[in-house]
Nucleic acid binder design. Structure first.
Length: 564
RNA sequence: GCGCCCGUAGCUCAGUUGGAUAGAGCGCCUGCCUCCGGAGCAGGAGGUCGCAGGUUCGAAUCCUGCCGGGCGCGCCA
Protein backbone atom coordinates (compact mmCIF):
# COMPACT_ATOMS: atom_id res chain seq x y z
CA UNK A 1 0.00 0.00 0.00
CA UNK A 2 1.32 3.43 0.79
CA UNK A 3 4.25 2.16 2.77
CA UNK A 4 6.69 4.04 0.61
CA UNK A 5 5.31 7.41 1.62
CA UNK A 6 5.40 6.58 5.31
CA UNK A 7 8.94 5.36 5.03
CA UNK A 8 10.02 8.56 3.25
CA UNK A 9 8.33 10.79 5.80
CA UNK A 10 9.90 8.87 8.67
CA UNK A 11 13.34 9.11 7.15
CA UNK A 12 12.94 12.84 6.72
CA UNK A 13 12.16 13.30 10.40
CA UNK A 14 14.98 11.02 11.45
CA UNK A 15 17.50 12.98 9.43
CA UNK A 16 16.34 16.13 11.19
CA UNK A 17 17.00 14.35 14.46
CA UNK A 18 20.54 13.61 13.45
CA UNK A 19 20.34 10.05 12.22
CA UNK A 20 22.57 9.89 9.18
CA UNK A 21 21.43 6.77 7.42
CA UNK A 22 18.03 5.91 8.74
CA UNK A 23 16.69 2.46 7.98
CA UNK A 24 13.04 2.01 8.66
CA UNK A 25 11.13 -1.21 9.11
CA UNK A 26 7.40 -1.18 8.65
CA UNK A 27 5.13 -4.01 9.64
CA UNK A 28 1.49 -4.82 9.66
CA UNK A 29 0.34 -5.19 13.24
CA UNK A 30 -1.51 -8.30 14.22
CA UNK A 31 -3.94 -6.38 16.35
CA UNK A 32 -6.27 -3.93 14.62
CA UNK A 33 -6.13 -1.49 17.53
CA UNK A 34 -2.46 -1.01 16.70
CA UNK A 35 -3.29 0.70 13.47
CA UNK A 36 -2.77 -0.32 9.87
CA UNK A 37 0.97 0.06 9.74
CA UNK A 38 3.51 0.13 12.56
CA UNK A 39 7.20 0.87 12.96
CA UNK A 40 9.74 0.01 15.61
CA UNK A 41 12.39 2.58 14.60
CA UNK A 42 12.26 4.34 17.94
CA UNK A 43 13.24 1.14 19.71
CA UNK A 44 16.05 0.27 17.38
CA UNK A 45 17.50 3.78 17.74
CA UNK A 46 17.32 3.87 21.52
CA UNK A 47 20.94 2.91 21.94
CA UNK A 48 22.31 5.19 19.24
CA UNK A 49 20.41 8.26 20.45
CA UNK A 50 20.85 7.41 24.12
CA UNK A 51 17.26 8.20 24.91
CA UNK A 52 14.28 6.07 25.82
CA UNK A 53 12.33 4.57 22.92
CA UNK A 54 9.15 6.31 23.99
CA UNK A 55 10.79 9.76 24.04
CA UNK A 56 12.14 9.21 20.58
CA UNK A 57 8.79 7.97 19.35
CA UNK A 58 6.99 10.99 20.80
CA UNK A 59 9.36 13.36 19.04
CA UNK A 60 8.95 11.56 15.73
CA UNK A 61 5.18 11.59 16.08
CA UNK A 62 5.15 15.33 16.75
CA UNK A 63 7.36 16.29 13.84
CA UNK A 64 5.95 13.88 11.28
CA UNK A 65 4.25 15.33 8.23
CA UNK A 66 0.99 13.39 8.25
CA UNK A 67 -0.13 14.54 4.85
CA UNK A 68 3.16 13.66 3.20
CA UNK A 69 3.06 10.26 4.84
CA UNK A 70 -0.48 9.73 3.61
CA UNK A 71 -1.86 8.76 6.98
CA UNK A 72 -4.83 9.88 9.01
CA UNK A 73 -3.21 9.61 12.41
CA UNK A 74 -0.09 8.42 14.19
CA UNK A 75 0.25 7.43 17.79
CA UNK A 76 2.86 6.13 20.16
CA UNK A 77 2.06 2.92 21.93
CA UNK A 78 3.54 0.16 24.05
CA UNK A 79 7.29 0.23 24.53
CA UNK A 80 7.73 2.75 21.72
CA UNK A 81 5.87 1.61 18.64
CA UNK A 82 4.63 4.15 16.12
CA UNK A 83 1.20 3.15 14.91
CA UNK A 84 -0.16 4.66 11.73
CA UNK A 85 -3.79 4.70 10.84
CA UNK A 86 -4.77 5.01 7.22
CA UNK A 87 -8.15 6.29 6.22
CA UNK A 88 -10.74 3.55 5.85
CA UNK A 89 -11.18 4.46 2.21
CA UNK A 90 -7.51 3.87 1.49
CA UNK A 91 -7.60 0.55 3.27
CA UNK A 92 -10.76 -0.56 1.54
CA UNK A 93 -9.42 0.34 -1.88
CA UNK A 94 -7.85 -3.09 -1.92
CA UNK A 95 -11.37 -4.40 -2.58
CA UNK A 96 -11.40 -2.84 -6.03
CA UNK A 97 -8.39 -4.89 -7.01
CA UNK A 98 -9.97 -8.07 -5.72
CA UNK A 99 -13.14 -7.60 -7.77
CA UNK A 100 -11.26 -6.71 -10.93
CA UNK A 101 -8.80 -9.58 -10.76
CA UNK A 102 -11.43 -12.05 -9.57
CA UNK A 103 -10.18 -15.56 -10.29
CA UNK A 104 -6.63 -14.31 -10.65
CA UNK A 105 -6.64 -12.60 -7.27
CA UNK A 106 -3.88 -14.03 -5.13
CA UNK A 107 -1.63 -15.00 -8.02
CA UNK A 108 1.88 -13.62 -8.13
CA UNK A 109 4.90 -13.87 -10.39
CA UNK A 110 7.47 -14.83 -7.77
CA UNK A 111 8.46 -17.96 -9.67
CA UNK A 112 9.05 -16.04 -12.88
CA UNK A 113 7.75 -18.91 -15.00
CA UNK A 114 10.64 -21.18 -13.98
CA UNK A 115 10.09 -24.91 -13.98
CA UNK A 116 9.83 -26.83 -10.75
CA UNK A 117 9.18 -30.50 -10.17
CA UNK A 118 7.25 -31.74 -7.17
CA UNK A 119 7.72 -35.44 -6.59
CA UNK A 120 5.29 -36.97 -4.14
CA UNK A 121 3.42 -40.11 -3.07
CA UNK A 122 5.83 -42.38 -5.01
CA UNK A 123 4.33 -45.40 -3.28
CA UNK A 124 5.57 -48.86 -4.12
CA UNK A 125 2.96 -50.76 -6.14
CA UNK A 126 2.56 -53.36 -3.43
CA UNK A 127 -0.87 -52.52 -2.06
CA UNK A 128 -3.58 -49.92 -1.52
CA UNK A 129 -2.57 -46.44 -0.35
CA UNK A 130 -2.91 -45.81 3.37
CA UNK A 131 -3.50 -42.61 5.30
CA UNK A 132 0.21 -41.82 5.39
CA UNK A 133 0.17 -41.67 1.59
CA UNK A 134 -2.97 -39.57 1.91
CA UNK A 135 -1.18 -36.95 3.93
CA UNK A 136 1.57 -36.88 1.39
CA UNK A 137 -0.82 -36.71 -1.54
CA UNK A 138 -2.78 -33.83 -0.03
CA UNK A 139 0.38 -31.97 0.97
CA UNK A 140 2.23 -32.52 -2.27
CA UNK A 141 -0.74 -31.53 -4.38
CA UNK A 142 -1.26 -28.35 -2.35
CA UNK A 143 2.40 -27.43 -2.54
CA UNK A 144 2.35 -27.93 -6.29
CA UNK A 145 -0.74 -25.78 -6.53
CA UNK A 146 0.74 -23.06 -4.33
CA UNK A 147 3.77 -22.95 -6.60
CA UNK A 148 1.53 -22.63 -9.64
CA UNK A 149 -0.26 -19.70 -8.03
CA UNK A 150 3.02 -17.99 -7.30
CA UNK A 151 4.23 -18.12 -10.86
CA UNK A 152 6.05 -21.41 -11.20
CA UNK A 153 5.63 -23.87 -14.01
CA UNK A 154 4.92 -27.02 -12.05
CA UNK A 155 5.42 -30.67 -12.96
CA UNK A 156 3.90 -33.31 -10.68
CA UNK A 157 5.79 -36.57 -10.67
CA UNK A 158 5.24 -40.01 -9.17
CA UNK A 159 8.23 -42.36 -8.95
CA UNK A 160 7.47 -46.05 -9.12
CA UNK A 161 9.91 -48.35 -7.34
CA UNK A 162 9.01 -51.24 -9.56
CA UNK A 163 12.19 -53.25 -9.06
CA UNK A 164 13.78 -54.71 -5.98
CA UNK A 165 13.06 -56.93 -3.06
CA UNK A 166 9.57 -55.76 -2.14
CA UNK A 167 8.43 -56.55 -5.66
CA UNK A 168 9.69 -60.11 -5.34
CA UNK A 169 8.10 -60.37 -1.95
CA UNK A 170 4.80 -59.17 -3.38
CA UNK A 171 4.84 -61.73 -6.17
CA UNK A 172 5.76 -64.55 -3.80
CA UNK A 173 2.92 -63.51 -1.50
CA UNK A 174 0.40 -63.71 -4.34
CA UNK A 175 1.87 -67.00 -5.43
CA UNK A 176 1.43 -68.43 -1.94
CA UNK A 177 -2.25 -67.43 -1.83
CA UNK A 178 -2.65 -68.82 -5.33
CA UNK A 179 -1.35 -72.21 -4.23
CA UNK A 180 -3.59 -72.11 -1.15
CA UNK A 181 -6.52 -71.48 -3.45
CA UNK A 182 -5.92 -74.92 -4.90
CA UNK A 183 -5.67 -76.46 -1.44
CA UNK A 184 -1.92 -76.69 -1.40
CA UNK A 185 0.41 -76.00 1.49
CA UNK A 186 2.06 -72.62 1.09
CA UNK A 187 3.22 -69.77 3.26
CA UNK A 188 3.56 -66.06 2.81
CA UNK A 189 7.30 -65.39 2.88
CA UNK A 190 8.89 -63.52 5.74
CA UNK A 191 8.30 -59.81 5.31
CA UNK A 192 5.60 -60.60 2.75
CA UNK A 193 2.14 -59.10 2.32
CA UNK A 194 -0.83 -60.40 4.27
CA UNK A 195 -3.63 -58.05 3.27
CA UNK A 196 -6.92 -59.37 1.96
CA UNK A 197 -6.22 -57.76 -1.40
CA UNK A 198 -3.45 -60.32 -1.99
CA UNK A 199 -6.04 -63.08 -1.79
CA UNK A 200 -8.34 -61.15 -4.13
CA UNK A 201 -5.60 -60.89 -6.70
CA UNK A 202 -4.62 -64.54 -6.29
CA UNK A 203 -8.25 -65.53 -6.90
CA UNK A 204 -8.24 -63.39 -10.01
CA UNK A 205 -5.09 -65.04 -11.18
CA UNK A 206 -6.60 -68.46 -10.67
CA UNK A 207 -9.60 -67.44 -12.75
CA UNK A 208 -7.35 -66.10 -15.46
CA UNK A 209 -4.89 -68.96 -15.82
CA UNK A 210 -6.45 -71.82 -13.92
CA UNK A 211 -3.97 -74.14 -12.23
CA UNK A 212 -1.25 -73.63 -14.83
CA UNK A 213 1.36 -72.52 -12.26
CA UNK A 214 0.51 -75.45 -10.04
CA UNK A 215 1.06 -78.06 -12.73
CA UNK A 216 3.88 -76.41 -14.54
CA UNK A 217 5.92 -73.92 -12.55
CA UNK A 218 8.74 -72.65 -14.72
CA UNK A 219 11.57 -70.15 -14.42
CA UNK A 220 9.61 -67.27 -15.89
CA UNK A 221 6.39 -67.99 -14.03
CA UNK A 222 7.13 -65.44 -11.33
CA UNK A 223 7.72 -62.80 -13.99
CA UNK A 224 4.39 -63.65 -15.54
CA UNK A 225 2.60 -63.46 -12.22
CA UNK A 226 4.26 -60.15 -11.59
CA UNK A 227 3.09 -58.87 -14.96
CA UNK A 228 -0.41 -59.81 -13.86
CA UNK A 229 -0.25 -58.36 -10.36
CA UNK A 230 1.46 -55.01 -10.76
CA UNK A 231 -0.96 -53.42 -13.25
CA UNK A 232 -3.87 -54.30 -10.99
CA UNK A 233 -2.30 -52.59 -8.00
CA UNK A 234 -1.17 -49.62 -10.03
CA UNK A 235 -4.65 -49.19 -11.42
CA UNK A 236 -6.11 -49.28 -7.94
CA UNK A 237 -3.67 -46.68 -6.65
CA UNK A 238 -4.44 -44.48 -9.63
CA UNK A 239 -8.17 -44.72 -8.96
CA UNK A 240 -7.66 -43.92 -5.30
CA UNK A 241 -5.59 -40.88 -6.18
CA UNK A 242 -7.82 -39.59 -8.93
CA UNK A 243 -10.91 -39.87 -6.76
CA UNK A 244 -8.91 -37.93 -4.18
CA UNK A 245 -8.41 -35.28 -6.91
CA UNK A 246 -4.71 -35.87 -7.19
CA UNK A 247 -3.28 -36.14 -10.69
CA UNK A 248 0.26 -36.50 -12.00
CA UNK A 249 1.97 -35.23 -15.11
CA UNK A 250 4.34 -38.15 -15.19
CA UNK A 251 4.88 -41.59 -13.72
CA UNK A 252 8.56 -42.34 -13.72
CA UNK A 253 9.55 -46.00 -13.61
CA UNK A 254 12.59 -47.03 -11.67
CA UNK A 255 13.06 -49.87 -14.14
CA UNK A 256 13.63 -47.34 -16.92
CA UNK A 257 16.77 -46.18 -15.14
CA UNK A 258 18.21 -49.63 -15.79
CA UNK A 259 16.82 -50.17 -19.27
CA UNK A 260 18.10 -46.79 -20.42
CA UNK A 261 21.53 -47.39 -18.98
CA UNK A 262 21.32 -44.55 -16.48
CA UNK A 263 22.32 -46.70 -13.55
CA UNK A 264 25.45 -47.93 -15.32
CA UNK A 265 26.25 -44.38 -16.38
CA UNK A 266 25.84 -43.12 -12.83
CA UNK A 267 28.18 -45.79 -11.47
CA UNK A 268 30.79 -44.75 -14.00
CA UNK A 269 30.30 -41.05 -13.32
CA UNK A 270 30.61 -41.57 -9.58
CA UNK A 271 33.77 -43.61 -10.06
CA UNK A 272 35.18 -40.88 -12.27
CA UNK A 273 34.99 -38.41 -9.41
CA UNK A 274 37.68 -40.41 -7.63
CA UNK A 275 35.64 -40.40 -4.45
CA UNK A 276 35.22 -44.19 -4.37
CA UNK A 277 37.08 -46.99 -2.71
CA UNK A 278 36.88 -50.76 -2.30
CA UNK A 279 36.21 -52.24 1.12
CA UNK A 280 35.25 -55.79 2.07
CA UNK A 281 34.46 -56.58 -1.52
CA UNK A 282 32.03 -53.69 -1.99
CA UNK A 283 32.46 -50.33 -3.70
CA UNK A 284 31.94 -47.34 -1.43
CA UNK A 285 31.27 -43.72 -2.18
CA UNK A 286 32.55 -40.94 0.07
CA UNK A 287 29.30 -39.14 0.80
CA UNK A 288 30.95 -37.90 4.01
CA UNK A 289 32.76 -35.43 1.78
CA UNK A 290 29.38 -33.73 1.44
CA UNK A 291 28.24 -33.80 5.03
CA UNK A 292 26.73 -37.27 5.23
CA UNK A 293 27.28 -39.10 8.49
CA UNK A 294 28.80 -42.17 6.89
CA UNK A 295 30.11 -43.29 3.54
CA UNK A 296 27.68 -45.40 1.54
CA UNK A 297 27.99 -48.62 -0.37
CA UNK A 298 27.19 -48.07 -4.02
CA UNK A 299 27.97 -51.52 -5.44
CA UNK A 300 27.45 -54.52 -3.24
CA UNK A 301 29.95 -57.37 -3.05
CA UNK A 302 27.56 -59.42 -5.19
CA UNK A 303 28.03 -56.88 -8.00
CA UNK A 304 24.58 -55.31 -7.74
CA UNK A 305 24.14 -51.59 -7.09
CA UNK A 306 22.46 -50.42 -3.87
CA UNK A 307 19.48 -48.11 -3.98
CA UNK A 308 21.87 -45.19 -3.71
CA UNK A 309 22.86 -45.47 -7.36
CA UNK A 310 19.47 -45.41 -9.10
CA UNK A 311 18.51 -42.62 -6.72
CA UNK A 312 21.44 -40.51 -7.84
CA UNK A 313 20.80 -41.46 -11.46
CA UNK A 314 17.18 -40.44 -11.09
CA UNK A 315 17.97 -37.05 -9.62
CA UNK A 316 20.65 -36.43 -12.17
CA UNK A 317 18.06 -37.12 -14.84
CA UNK A 318 15.62 -34.72 -13.19
CA UNK A 319 18.23 -32.02 -13.57
CA UNK A 320 19.01 -33.04 -17.15
CA UNK A 321 15.33 -32.86 -18.00
CA UNK A 322 15.50 -29.17 -17.14
CA UNK A 323 14.23 -29.14 -13.59
CA UNK A 324 16.73 -27.02 -11.73
CA UNK A 325 14.39 -26.83 -8.81
CA UNK A 326 13.00 -30.08 -7.43
CA UNK A 327 10.97 -30.61 -4.29
CA UNK A 328 10.71 -34.14 -2.92
CA UNK A 329 7.85 -34.74 -0.55
CA UNK A 330 8.62 -37.77 1.59
CA UNK A 331 7.88 -39.39 4.91
CA UNK A 332 10.36 -38.32 7.55
CA UNK A 333 11.44 -41.93 7.96
CA UNK A 334 13.38 -41.33 4.74
CA UNK A 335 15.34 -38.39 6.07
CA UNK A 336 18.47 -40.51 6.11
CA UNK A 337 18.50 -40.47 2.31
CA UNK A 338 18.69 -36.69 2.04
CA UNK A 339 22.41 -36.23 2.65
CA UNK A 340 23.15 -39.38 0.70
CA UNK A 341 21.35 -38.30 -2.45
CA UNK A 342 22.70 -34.78 -2.25
CA UNK A 343 26.17 -36.17 -1.72
CA UNK A 344 25.88 -38.06 -4.96
CA UNK A 345 24.38 -35.24 -6.99
CA UNK A 346 26.86 -32.69 -5.67
CA UNK A 347 29.74 -34.98 -6.54
CA UNK A 348 28.39 -34.91 -10.08
CA UNK A 349 28.37 -31.13 -10.12
CA UNK A 350 24.82 -30.24 -9.11
CA UNK A 351 24.30 -27.41 -6.60
CA UNK A 352 24.18 -27.88 -2.87
CA UNK A 353 20.49 -27.37 -2.16
CA UNK A 354 19.34 -29.73 -4.90
CA UNK A 355 16.93 -31.39 -4.48
CA UNK A 356 14.83 -29.75 -1.76
CA UNK A 357 12.92 -31.92 0.69
CA UNK A 358 9.63 -31.60 2.51
CA UNK A 359 9.58 -34.33 5.13
CA UNK A 360 6.35 -35.08 6.90
CA UNK A 361 5.66 -37.12 10.01
CA UNK A 362 3.27 -40.01 10.41
CA UNK A 363 -0.49 -39.91 10.86
CA UNK A 364 -2.52 -41.47 13.63
CA UNK A 365 -6.28 -41.82 13.22
CA UNK A 366 -8.67 -41.91 16.15
CA UNK A 367 -12.37 -42.59 16.56
CA UNK A 368 -14.26 -42.35 19.85
CA UNK A 369 -10.96 -41.42 21.43
CA UNK A 370 -9.34 -44.67 20.38
CA UNK A 371 -6.85 -45.48 17.68
CA UNK A 372 -8.40 -46.77 14.48
CA UNK A 373 -7.19 -50.30 14.02
CA UNK A 374 -5.95 -52.04 10.97
CA UNK A 375 -7.83 -52.35 7.76
CA UNK A 376 -8.18 -56.04 7.10
CA UNK A 377 -8.24 -55.72 3.38
CA UNK A 378 -5.28 -53.35 3.17
CA UNK A 379 -3.38 -55.35 5.75
CA UNK A 380 -1.95 -52.17 7.18
CA UNK A 381 -3.19 -48.93 8.66
CA UNK A 382 -6.53 -47.49 7.59
CA UNK A 383 -6.61 -47.11 3.82
CA UNK A 384 -6.94 -43.72 2.22
CA UNK A 385 -10.06 -44.73 0.33
CA UNK A 386 -11.83 -46.04 3.40
CA UNK A 387 -11.13 -42.73 5.08
CA UNK A 388 -12.39 -40.40 2.39
CA UNK A 389 -15.33 -42.58 1.51
CA UNK A 390 -16.48 -42.03 5.06
CA UNK A 391 -15.68 -38.39 5.79
CA UNK A 392 -15.51 -36.92 2.28
CA UNK A 393 -12.68 -35.80 0.02
CA UNK A 394 -12.85 -32.11 0.96
CA UNK A 395 -12.55 -32.80 4.65
CA UNK A 396 -9.83 -35.42 4.23
CA UNK A 397 -7.68 -33.16 2.09
CA UNK A 398 -8.10 -30.22 4.41
CA UNK A 399 -7.36 -32.16 7.57
CA UNK A 400 -4.08 -33.35 6.08
CA UNK A 401 -3.21 -29.87 4.88
CA UNK A 402 -4.06 -27.93 8.01
CA UNK A 403 -1.19 -29.32 10.07
CA UNK A 404 2.40 -28.38 9.48
CA UNK A 405 4.28 -31.21 7.81
CA UNK A 406 7.06 -31.75 10.31
CA UNK A 407 4.91 -32.70 13.28
CA UNK A 408 3.00 -35.87 13.98
CA UNK A 409 -0.68 -35.46 13.38
CA UNK A 410 -3.82 -36.91 14.77
CA UNK A 411 -6.72 -37.44 12.39
CA UNK A 412 -9.84 -37.30 14.52
CA UNK A 413 -12.53 -39.07 12.51
CA UNK A 414 -15.32 -37.80 14.77
CA UNK A 415 -14.23 -34.19 14.30
CA UNK A 416 -14.00 -34.82 10.56
CA UNK A 417 -17.58 -36.11 10.45
CA UNK A 418 -18.99 -32.99 12.12
CA UNK A 419 -20.84 -30.89 9.57
CA UNK A 420 -21.25 -27.71 11.57
CA UNK A 421 -19.09 -24.61 11.74
CA UNK A 422 -16.98 -26.42 14.30
CA UNK A 423 -15.40 -28.31 11.45
CA UNK A 424 -12.93 -25.87 9.88
CA UNK A 425 -13.65 -27.08 6.36
CA UNK A 426 -17.36 -26.42 6.68
CA UNK A 427 -16.69 -23.19 8.52
CA UNK A 428 -14.90 -21.88 5.45
CA UNK A 429 -17.38 -23.36 2.99
CA UNK A 430 -20.33 -21.99 4.98
CA UNK A 431 -18.81 -18.52 4.97
CA UNK A 432 -18.45 -18.73 1.21
CA UNK A 433 -21.97 -20.07 0.74
CA UNK A 434 -23.39 -17.32 2.95
CA UNK A 435 -21.95 -14.66 0.71
CA UNK A 436 -23.50 -16.40 -2.27
CA UNK A 437 -26.87 -16.57 -0.54
CA UNK A 438 -26.76 -12.84 0.11
CA UNK A 439 -26.41 -12.21 -3.60
CA UNK A 440 -29.26 -14.58 -4.27
CA UNK A 441 -31.39 -12.79 -1.73
CA UNK A 442 -30.53 -9.43 -3.25
CA UNK A 443 -31.44 -10.86 -6.62
CA UNK A 444 -28.14 -10.04 -8.27
CA UNK A 445 -25.44 -12.02 -9.98
CA UNK A 446 -22.19 -12.10 -8.05
CA UNK A 447 -20.24 -11.45 -11.24
CA UNK A 448 -22.20 -8.27 -11.89
CA UNK A 449 -21.03 -6.57 -8.72
CA UNK A 450 -18.51 -3.85 -9.45
CA UNK A 451 -16.70 -1.53 -7.12
CA UNK A 452 -16.59 1.26 -9.67
CA UNK A 453 -17.00 4.61 -7.97
CA UNK A 454 -18.51 3.13 -4.82
CA UNK A 455 -17.47 5.05 -1.71
CA UNK A 456 -15.74 2.35 0.32
CA UNK A 457 -14.93 4.63 3.23
CA UNK A 458 -18.33 3.78 4.70
CA UNK A 459 -16.89 0.39 5.57
CA UNK A 460 -15.51 1.76 8.81
CA UNK A 461 -17.03 -0.55 11.37
CA UNK A 462 -14.43 -2.45 13.34
CA UNK A 463 -15.64 -5.79 12.00
CA UNK A 464 -15.47 -4.47 8.47
CA UNK A 465 -12.01 -3.02 8.89
CA UNK A 466 -10.78 -6.30 10.24
CA UNK A 467 -12.29 -8.21 7.37
CA UNK A 468 -10.83 -5.82 4.82
CA UNK A 469 -7.46 -6.15 6.48
CA UNK A 470 -7.68 -9.94 6.20
CA UNK A 471 -8.62 -9.84 2.55
CA UNK A 472 -5.69 -7.59 1.77
CA UNK A 473 -3.30 -10.15 3.18
CA UNK A 474 -4.36 -13.01 0.93
CA UNK A 475 -1.65 -12.66 -1.69
CA UNK A 476 1.23 -12.33 0.74
CA UNK A 477 -0.09 -15.24 2.79
CA UNK A 478 -0.24 -17.37 -0.31
CA UNK A 479 3.32 -16.38 -1.17
CA UNK A 480 4.58 -17.23 2.27
CA UNK A 481 2.71 -20.51 2.23
CA UNK A 482 4.33 -21.36 -1.11
CA UNK A 483 7.81 -20.17 -0.15
CA UNK A 484 7.83 -22.31 2.97
CA UNK A 485 6.06 -25.25 1.33
CA UNK A 486 3.57 -25.19 4.20
CA UNK A 487 -0.08 -25.31 3.10
CA UNK A 488 -1.24 -25.03 6.71
CA UNK A 489 -0.33 -21.34 6.61
CA UNK A 490 -3.03 -20.84 4.00
CA UNK A 491 -5.45 -23.00 5.99
CA UNK A 492 -4.94 -20.86 9.08
CA UNK A 493 -5.55 -17.77 7.01
CA UNK A 494 -8.76 -19.10 5.49
CA UNK A 495 -10.09 -20.16 8.85
CA UNK A 496 -9.38 -16.77 10.31
CA UNK A 497 -10.93 -14.97 7.37
CA UNK A 498 -13.97 -17.23 7.52
CA UNK A 499 -14.22 -16.44 11.22
CA UNK A 500 -14.15 -12.70 10.57
CA UNK A 501 -16.69 -13.18 7.82
CA UNK A 502 -19.07 -15.14 10.00
CA UNK A 503 -18.68 -12.58 12.78
CA UNK A 504 -19.50 -9.74 10.44
CA UNK A 505 -22.39 -11.66 8.94
CA UNK A 506 -23.92 -12.56 12.29
CA UNK A 507 -23.44 -9.05 13.68
CA UNK A 508 -25.45 -7.80 10.72
CA UNK A 509 -28.45 -9.95 11.45
CA UNK A 510 -31.25 -7.72 10.10
CA UNK A 511 -33.73 -8.40 12.86
CA UNK A 512 -31.28 -7.70 15.65
CA UNK A 513 -28.90 -5.22 14.16
CA UNK A 514 -30.29 -3.75 10.94
CA UNK A 515 -27.74 -0.93 10.72
CA UNK A 516 -25.00 -3.51 10.13
CA UNK A 517 -26.95 -5.66 7.69
CA UNK A 518 -25.29 -6.26 4.37
CA UNK A 519 -28.49 -5.50 2.53
CA UNK A 520 -28.87 -2.16 4.27
CA UNK A 521 -31.55 0.43 3.46
CA UNK A 522 -29.06 3.09 2.46
CA UNK A 523 -28.13 2.32 -1.15
CA UNK A 524 -24.53 3.54 -0.79
CA UNK A 525 -23.85 1.45 2.26
CA UNK A 526 -25.62 -1.48 0.71
CA UNK A 527 -23.47 -1.22 -2.39
CA UNK A 528 -20.24 -0.93 -0.39
CA UNK A 529 -21.14 -3.98 1.66
CA UNK A 530 -22.02 -5.96 -1.40
CA UNK A 531 -18.56 -5.15 -2.71
CA UNK A 532 -17.08 -6.41 0.53
CA UNK A 533 -19.20 -9.57 0.42
CA UNK A 534 -18.13 -10.19 -3.15
CA UNK A 535 -14.47 -9.72 -2.22
CA UNK A 536 -14.86 -12.20 0.61
CA UNK A 537 -16.45 -14.69 -1.72
CA UNK A 538 -13.58 -14.36 -4.21
CA UNK A 539 -10.87 -14.76 -1.60
CA UNK A 540 -12.44 -17.79 0.07
CA UNK A 541 -13.20 -19.44 -3.24
CA UNK A 542 -9.68 -18.87 -4.56
CA UNK A 543 -8.13 -20.09 -1.34
CA UNK A 544 -10.16 -23.29 -1.38
CA UNK A 545 -9.32 -23.75 -5.04
CA UNK A 546 -5.61 -23.59 -4.28
CA UNK A 547 -6.07 -26.40 -1.78
CA UNK A 548 -8.12 -28.47 -4.18
CA UNK A 549 -11.25 -28.15 -2.08
CA UNK A 550 -14.68 -27.30 -3.43
CA UNK A 551 -16.34 -23.94 -2.78
CA UNK A 552 -20.08 -24.70 -2.84
CA UNK A 553 -22.53 -21.86 -3.41
CA UNK A 554 -25.09 -23.68 -1.27
CA UNK A 555 -24.61 -26.03 1.63
CA UNK A 556 -27.67 -28.21 1.12
CA UNK A 557 -27.99 -31.26 3.23
CA UNK A 558 -28.35 -33.36 0.12
CA UNK A 559 -25.10 -32.01 -1.24
CA UNK A 560 -23.34 -32.74 2.00
CA UNK A 561 -24.59 -36.30 2.02
CA UNK A 562 -23.45 -37.16 -1.44
CA UNK A 563 -20.24 -35.18 -1.20
CA UNK A 564 -17.63 -37.30 -2.99
C1' G B 1 26.16 -43.66 21.18
C1' C B 2 25.45 -40.18 16.73
C1' G B 3 22.00 -37.34 13.47
C1' C B 4 17.06 -35.15 12.17
C1' C B 5 11.99 -33.73 13.88
C1' C B 6 8.72 -32.57 17.95
C1' G B 7 7.53 -30.58 23.24
C1' U B 8 2.65 -24.06 23.86
C1' A B 9 -4.64 -24.18 27.82
C1' G B 10 -7.58 -30.67 30.20
C1' C B 11 -7.42 -32.42 24.42
C1' U B 12 -6.04 -31.22 19.04
C1' C B 13 -3.05 -27.38 17.20
C1' A B 14 -1.54 -21.94 15.42
C1' G B 15 1.97 -18.25 16.52
C1' U B 16 3.49 -14.09 9.87
C1' U B 17 11.32 -16.44 11.10
C1' G B 18 13.03 -11.29 17.32
C1' G B 19 7.90 -7.42 18.74
C1' A B 20 2.95 -4.90 22.01
C1' U B 21 -1.77 -8.24 27.03
C1' A B 22 1.03 -15.85 23.83
C1' G B 23 -4.06 -17.14 20.07
C1' A B 24 -8.00 -20.60 17.66
C1' G B 25 -11.20 -25.11 17.78
C1' C B 26 -13.07 -29.09 21.01
C1' G B 27 -14.49 -29.74 26.10
C1' C B 28 -16.18 -26.87 30.61
C1' C B 29 -19.14 -22.51 32.97
C1' U B 30 -22.84 -18.19 32.26
C1' G B 31 -26.40 -15.73 29.58
C1' C B 32 -29.31 -15.10 25.06
C1' C B 33 -31.87 -17.43 20.55
C1' U B 34 -37.33 -19.79 16.42
C1' C B 35 -32.77 -16.55 13.22
C1' C B 36 -30.70 -13.14 5.72
C1' G B 37 -28.91 -20.62 6.47
C1' G B 38 -30.00 -25.79 9.79
C1' A B 39 -26.14 -28.74 16.40
C1' G B 40 -27.07 -21.03 16.17
C1' C B 41 -25.18 -16.19 18.92
C1' A B 42 -22.55 -13.27 22.84
C1' G B 43 -19.33 -13.64 26.90
C1' G B 44 -16.17 -16.25 30.79
C1' A B 45 -12.67 -19.39 33.31
C1' G B 46 -8.33 -22.03 31.92
C1' G B 47 -0.64 -20.92 30.65
C1' U B 48 6.19 -21.41 34.82
C1' C B 49 5.44 -21.66 26.17
C1' G B 50 9.47 -29.23 28.79
C1' C B 51 13.77 -27.48 32.44
C1' A B 52 18.21 -24.31 33.30
C1' G B 53 21.42 -20.72 31.60
C1' G B 54 22.95 -17.09 27.67
C1' U B 55 22.47 -13.20 23.59
C1' U B 56 19.46 -7.52 23.76
C1' C B 57 15.66 -2.24 24.20
C1' G B 58 12.52 -6.94 23.73
C1' A B 59 12.77 -14.36 23.40
C1' A B 60 7.52 -19.29 22.66
C1' U B 61 10.85 -17.77 18.51
C1' C B 62 18.24 -17.31 18.14
C1' C B 63 22.80 -19.98 21.01
C1' U B 64 24.49 -23.81 24.72
C1' G B 65 23.45 -27.83 28.09
C1' C B 66 19.99 -31.18 30.09
C1' C B 67 14.83 -34.00 30.32
C1' G B 68 10.92 -36.48 27.59
C1' G B 69 8.58 -38.57 22.78
C1' G B 70 9.07 -40.08 17.39
C1' C B 71 12.19 -41.49 13.27
C1' G B 72 16.82 -42.85 11.03
C1' C B 73 21.75 -44.82 11.46
C1' G B 74 28.21 -49.11 6.17
C1' C B 75 26.53 -53.99 1.05
C1' C B 76 17.28 -52.83 2.77
C1' A B 77 14.41 -49.50 -0.11
Amino acid sequence: MSHGKIEAALCAVLRQMGVEQPTVQLERPRDLSHGDVASNVAMTLARELKRSPRQIAEQIAESLDLEAAGVEAVEVAGPGFLNFRLSSGVVASVLRGILVRDEAWGRSETGGGERVMVEFVSANPTGPLHIGHGRQAALGDAIASLLTWTGWQVHREFYYNNVGLQMESLVLSVHARYLQHFGLEAEIPEGGYHGGYITEIAEGLAQEVGDRYVRDFAEQSLDEIRAFVVPILRAEQDRDLNDFRVFFDEFYLESSLYSEGRVEAAIQALKDTGLVYEHEGATWFKTTEFGDQKDRVMVRSNGLPTYFVPDVAYHLHKWQRGFHRVINVQGSDHHGTVDRVRGGTQALGLPEGFPEYVLHQMVRATRDGEDVKFSKRAGSALSLRELYDEVGVDVTRYFFQMRKPDAHMLFDVDAALDQSDKNPVYKIQYAHARMCSIFAKAGIEAESIEAGATDLSVLDHELERELVKNLGEFTETLERSARQCTPHVLCEYLEQTAGSTNGWYHAGNPTRNPELAVLAEDPEIRQARLVLARAVQIVLRNGLTVLGISAPTRMDRAILDEEP
